[in-house]
Design a protein around this nucleic acid. Structure first.
Length: 122
DNA sequence: AAGATGACTAACT
DNA sequence: AAGTTAGCCATCT
């Protein structure tokens, strides 16, 4: 058969992108995740850059909450004065995400915390 | 075709 | 606190 390395499941790039998109789709409204975390949840630890790439290449017809992905410092990875940066911030603030000096409290706005709120109340 | 680039990050100065 | 380095690796020049 064609597989040169039996037993080793080598995921295609399309597969990796698809897994990344699925994770991003699962980020609840009002929450954020950083690139590295999305990568880990997609089974791709250490490949944060791939997440940015996957988002940039997401199909037009697949609406993704791309704005809910920020960097590990809790900052938007676009320049604050750029069109994209401002759009991302506006989208996040519209769902209740709070910035303090351009920084989001990743702990506070994590999906994990959202679950806790559902279980235990605010 | 080799080198630069980047929606990244953790670990170092 | 802020800048550098090494790892990441598909894409773009």
């Amino acid at each position: 058969m064609a597989n040169a390395s039996p037993g080793v499941e080598e995921s295609s790039q399309e597969e990796r992108f698809r897994r990344i998109w699925e994770v991003v789709e699962g980020i609840p409204e009002g929450c954020v995740l950083n690139y590295g975390e999305v990568a880990r949840l997609a089974g791709l630890p250490g490949r944060a850059r791939l997440v940015g790439r996957a988002l940039a290449r997401a199909p037009r017809n697949r609406p993704l909450p791309w704005h809910r992905v920020v960097n590990a410092q809790g900052r938007i990875s676009f320049a604050a004065d750029s069109v994209r940066g401002q759009r991302q911030r506006r989208l996040l603030e519209a769902e209740g995400v709070v910035f303090r000096d351009d920084v989001i409290d990743l702990e506070r706005f994590s999906p994990e915390q959202a679950i806790d709120r559902l279980l235990w109340g605010p």
